[in-house]
Design a protein around this nucleic acid. Structure first.
Lengths: 418, 418
DNA sequence: ATATTTATTTTGGCTGTCAAAAAAATAATC
DNA sequence: GATTATTTTTTTGACAGCCAAAATAAATAT
């Protein structure tokens, strides 16, 4: 017979109701105006009917709202490339596109090698860019501010808009950045910590500013301009000095519970493993980052009497591996295996639709080798399910700035259109 | 001078526009009616003014909509507990609460030990429950359907609603479940694979059905009835036969890119590590799951001549560890260390506001020991940031069914209120 | 009793959205 | 070349939803 049992500890939950508690009214709902504007920008050029079909708004609403957006100078009519689909009968559609001069935004990336900036119009098109060498030393907040100012100015000059006041500026840098508060909690090349950089920049540059972690910028670059545009969710993993990750969930960048970046570099791939610069052992970064490879190269290449720079050392190690030096090869191959474990864990935990690998070209041959990808596939093999695709995406040096540009674009759109 | 460089590969992206591409009009927007209903349920009992303040709708709208909801028989007025805050001057507020008889839903959990069900009213209150032993053998789809029917009937009987037609039923089971398609891709105790169980159940039980992975149910139980109600995001990790995880992001259960559960159990904690039943090596599960412990117990306890059940063996191992048997202790302590690595990786990657540990009481002493939690803290230590809280949450056996109840409640709400 | 305070309802109006009809602009057909 | 078919876009009129402000209700304080 039925062995019915009551669960007494649950019975007592009555006073408070049930269901998720929402802290504030959901602010993520965009106005029709903004939705349509963004759909126009996403499409490049699109007819009113297609807009209606894509967004679900009625043709009447699209006509009205687009008239409104045109009157505001935000979009304009344009020719539409001939669509060969059905004969071409009927009234030909007229395209809508973002009016380029509706706004200007700037995306900036500050790093320990070079600073760069892109200048974009409100349609997301590149108006100009600039790259300036960055000092290799630790820098004060004041220096960072000046560098930001310089690179912004150089970018505007290249775009032929000297002295223009951008509608939004976004700046990315490595380290721990609290996006919501606009503070740099820690940055590898900054002397000070916990700096309210966003507000300082805002005051200095006379434009609204957002700051973010550079790994997030990569994800934004893919989401806005690259592979990720059509995907519900994906992860971008980048190997530079550290190992970073940006995660897009449901078409939006996910910044984690505390508002900081996702730190794949410090996931543990080995219990009691190699020492990481964070002080812990077994971090992925301690196996695949620059300094980890250099550390091993130091031993393997027997270069301890010289004192070459880290970059040179890495270069040498890389060359030797390519020439067939077994020791040098094992260094890369071990790093590669651990990288595969790290990637596999991301796949297993998040199950993203795609993983994009990004970073310095130097590393492609070894760390992004087919061997690593195949090991990742092995480690995540699930019967009956296709393996998560892992792609290597090589961009130019301006990706980061481009991602920052996307962030700025998003911000400016809210201000100008919303 | 400025070392300006153009990035040619980007210049050529013009045709397609930029920004995320949204596949379909965002369907996640709820009607005012439903938002207010859910706010009432979340609060338990709440005045119209408080409702207005919480949801951001004007008092006028709240009055109108609540009148509408009352007319539909979904909510009703109620007394409000005296609020001592300010003197108690002015017109006393009138409470609103969900009308209990507005609907009935059932949450069901099928497992390899016992099946259970809870019957809830639309306010989320427990009307009745039932638990029936489950056969330890592999079961056919037909058997699962019959068991589901039985446990639903037993639940309704316990709730004194024999023969009632529930407004929604949700069912959870271990394994791989495709929520969106309503299919069981694989379940440890089912003979067949890739079964459209949702639709089969729907036909059999005559009510709308949803099915989900049991780890997700735990997360839903916490989100609706437990610790997670007030949190933006959190993870629930459960150790049973396998190791599962449910992840709540932004007040919503995240089901992963492919729609399946997050599989923390198969994250790799050791390169070339212990063999897992999934065929791979180094999975967390291969160190902390039942069968892993039993495997080691087999060696340690020197019981190979007998043939005790896995449960008995675990019990023996546990007792011996408690009595001070060093070998038995090392088994648990190693498992604990790997669990710490697994948890640390979740913290590092997701940065959730809270991690809840859930599972069988038996395991609390060793796998959920303070030692493990402290190791997790060590492995995730970030200077300047407080450690991610990890809590052990002990529920009764009905948690899973309760989580399924939440899922059913959500479904029924949409149908009845939306 | 009267003033004060807080909650709720009523009123009137505004905004956004849509369905349906009309208009516009083309190709196909006779 | 006129007519018809087809597709896009605009116009029209109406309705739903939400709100601000005023009015009403129900209590406490004086």
């Amino acid at each position: 017979m039925s062995n019915i049992a009551h669960d007494t500890e649950i019975e007592t939950q009555s006073p408070g109701g049930c269901g998720p508690l929402f802290p504030a009214p959901d602010s993520s709902v965009k106005s029709t105006r903004q939705q349509l504007f963004e759909a126009v920008r996403a499409a490049g050029a699109i007819s009113r009917m297609d807009l209606s079909r894509q967004t679900g708004f009625s043709p009447a609403t699209v006509t009205q709202t687009s008239a409104d957006l045109i009157a505001s100078g935000l979009i304009e009519e344009t020719d539409l490339p001939r669509r060969d689909s059905d004969g071409g009968r009927g009234r030909p559609p007229v395209g809508l596109k973002v009016r380029p001069s509706a706004g200007v935004v700037i995306g900036v990336k500050i790093s320990d090698r070079s600073n760069s900036a892109v200048v974009l119009d409100l349609a997301g098109r590149l108006l100009g860019s600039a790259t300036l060498p960055a000092p290799p030393t630790a820098r004060s907040t004041e220096e960072i501010l000046r560098e930001a100012e310089d690179i912004v100015r150089a970018g505007l000059r290249d775009a032929g808009r000297e002295g223009a006041r951008p509608d939004a500026i976004a700046l990315g840098l490595p380290g721990m950045v609290d996006f919501d508060l606009g503070r740099v909690l820690w940055c590898p090349f900054m002397e000070e910590a916990d700096i309210p950089l966003r507000d300082l920049l805002c005051a200095r540059l006379g434009a609204p500013v957002r700051i973010d972690n550079d790994a997030n910028l990569l994800a934004l670059a893919e989401l806005w301009f690259g592979e990720g545009r059509g995907l519900d969710n994906f992860a971008v993993v980048s190997i530079e000095h550290g190992v970073g990750m940006g995660l897009v969930i449901n078409h939006r960048l996910h910044r984690g519970g505390m508002g900081h970046g996702m730190e794949i570099g410090h996931t543990k791939v080995q219990l009691d493993g190699a020492l990481c610069r964070c002080g812990q052992r077994g971090c992925l970064e301690a196996y695949v980052a620059d300094y980890a490879l250099v550390r091993e190269a130091h031993t393997a290449l027997n270069l301890s009497h010289q004192n070459p720079s880290a970059d040179d050392m890495l270069e040498t190690l890389y060359r030797q591996a390519k020439e067939g030096n077994a020791l040098a090869r094992t260094i890369f191959s071990r790093a590669g295996r651990y990288l595969a474990v790290g990637l596999a864990n991301v796949v297993t935990l998040f199950d993203p639709a795609l993983i994009l690998l990004s970073g310095d070209r130097l590393r492609y041959d070894f760390l992004y080798a087919e061997e690593v990808l195949s090991e990742t596939r092995t480690l995540t093999h699930r019967p009956g399910r296709p393996p998560t695709p892992v792609e290597i995406h090589a961009w130019g040096d301006l990706v980061w700035a481009r991602g920052a540009g996307a962030l700025a674009l998003d911000f400016a759109t809210e201000t100008l259109v919303g």
